[in-house]
Design a protein around this nucleic acid. Structure first.
Lengths: 340, 340
DNA sequence: GTTTTTTTGATTTACGTACATCAAATTTGG
DNA sequence: CCAAATTTGATGTACGTAAATCAAAAAAAC
């Protein structure tokens, strides 16, 4: 049987109340006594029964998710996963609230974060907008004791406790290698469709993509990036125009708005053998993968990201360790054969 | 606040004891009364607080893992993950025992399973050996009320509750498409290295591989399968010999023993541009991927498989639902750019 | 209508921890 | 050495559920 507080009390030769004071860092314990108790804890290998503690405390974990108000499939999916998590709240003792902020608007995000420090959530998960002022509030909140994890898009250089999202540089590099290998000996130009170069994850994907392309596939030239603002209409327009260039042999779509990309490909490129790599598995990209319009899809699993963020925040709130390997968000690579 | 048993008792107009009798399926409740209680449970949306219940019961989950005594990196990794899970046991209220059985030996497996029905574990996870007699015991145990999940290798056609492993047909198909696409217009022969055609997962991978090859890459011919028995030495010998064939342009290694494969490739194929796809990320395959000896690695994450099996068994033991999407074991595809 | 059986209620203890209160013991300051 | 301050102990209640006991009520059987 695992030891209980009673065993610790007996082993340390003190009363239950004293053990409790040490465990919960309450005042009124002499230094030597505290040491005795801590020794007993270590020697018996005592670990607090979190379930029993939560029961006694009637504890719930009030968590806040902050998301950009973007109208694309991925963000809708992320939202849906958060709603699922809210449905599971009773069983998980969580109390989750989702807040939408205008996309790409550091000031708005800062405002929301500052408002949060008043209501006392025990954890914050946020899709970070990459700006110095955001970094500053995040660091302040972390110092104030709030567990914070970034979701989907990281805030490197800040003190956030954890990042629940894929390595976007690796994603871009992987896309480049897949595209390069799929094209084999063919020479030509590559069109890149992004959402916006103002977003960190898109910048990182592009960075990874161009570096592998330059290092390993010199016969493939990257055309100037098309910024589709994650909007299907704009994406369609840009891609349709770009496909006028007969030298294009491949396309890398690293953002959202793939509906427009797919439409453009079907209108303008049915007779050409283009190799296309896109991000994010949605109903549209899935169908396009199956009908060979797209050759591979890179994906991050929003459900895993949300569940991981929750696990990490709860663990941080309790001062517990997380299983690192479990919380690593993997880059999914889907060909038409391994679709879920 | 979520409703408690007290609320149910009040709402149904019965006593706490009666609610308890209904909840825990104890006898001595009239049919109509039971209905009243069940209605109240439904209307208030009561869900039993599993943490509190486990505390009261002093419940632990005795789980048994049955693994083949195979001496390869993957099984060692799986074993290590189970040991990790055992270390987490106190916090998770599990009591995990691992049993090794001779590999590919249905009779031995059946023996162990029958022994288990005497000691009463609340769940069994097993790497299944695919044989009718195994299916029969599994079905019998399931009927007797034991939750059973298969691990890594499934037992289709049996009544096992869940399979914690990858879709091996999809894995084989994916390998074929990667290989085919990487080779592009090249024609030639493909060598396939397997462990044994007696193992279901290897058979399935081969099945998926050959079907996509036949359908979509008719210029690539698959040579007779090399059975390396997951042994590095045998694998080395077989591959070294096979590489005498100058028509070989690609290799698919769908089992273990990749150490031997890699050695053979480095000795015999430095000057050739072979495309190689292998299964299972180990120290050896990882290094080979980085130095371009291998072009892609397909992997199943043993840690995820073990944790998933535990979650599913606990849920089944409690009669609770699992998050399906969370328990799907994904096929990892690693290029040198997205290694963890 | 009485007896027997079945069903229900009331109450208690327990699980491991948190938290509060009050008394007792110990240490510290003067 | 005494008073004040600090530290420790003893004890009780609570969290939501499980499980047991015994009494009371209701239903069924005679």
């Amino acid at each position: 049987m695992r030891p209980t507080v009673h065993d610790i009390a007996a082993a340390a030769g003190v009363s239950l109340a004293t053990v409790d004071r040490v465990l919960n860092q309450r005042p009124g314990v002499r230094h030597v006594t505290r040491e005795k108790v801590e020794t007993a804890i270590r020697e018996l290998g005592y670990v607090r029964d979190v379930a029993a503690a939560n029961l006694a405390k009637g504890r719930t974990y009030p968590l806040v998710f902050i998301l950009p108000a973007s109208d694309n499939s991925f963000m809708h999916g992320l939202n849906a996963e958060i709603r699922q998590a809210i449905l599971r709240s009773p069983a998980e003792r969580t109390d989750i609230r989702a807040i939408e902020v205008p996309a790409f608007d550091p000031a708005a995000l800062v405002g929301v974060l500052e408002g949060l420090s008043r209501e006392k959530p025990c954890g914050i998960a946020m899709v970070a907008t990459d700006a110095p002022e955001v970094r500053a509030v995040v660091d302040r909140l972390v110092h104030a004791g709030f567990p914070i994890v970034t979701l989907v898009s990281d805030l490197t250089g800040s003190l956030r406790h954890h990042y629940a999202g894929v390595d976007n540089i690796a994603a871009g590099r992987t896309a480049a290698r897949l595209l390069g290998r799929f094209l084999g000996p063919r020479k030509g130009k590559i069109a890149v469709l992004a959402g916006s170069m103002l977003v960190r994850d898109h910048r990182e994907r592009l960075e990874g993509f161009t570096s592998v392309m330059a290092e390993e596939f010199p016969d493939l030239a990257i055309l100037p990036v098309l910024e589709g603002r994650d909007d299907p209409e704009i994406a369609h327009m840009l891609v349709a125009k770009a496909l006028g260039n007969a030298d294009i042999v491949g396309v890398y779509s690293l953002g959202a708005g793939n509906r427009g990309l797919i439409r453009a490909l079907k209108e303008k490129a049915v007779d050409r053998t283009l190799t296309v790599i896109a991000h994010e598995l949605t109903a549209h990209t899935r169908a396009a993968l199956i009908d060979n319009t797209i050759d591979a899809i890179l994906n991050q699993n929003a459900g895993h990201e949300v569940r991981s963020a929750i696990r990490v925040l709860k663990a941080k709130a309790d001062g517990l360790a997380v299983i690192e390997a479990q919380e690593r968000i993997r880059l999914d690579i889907f060909l038409k054969d391994n679709l879920p």
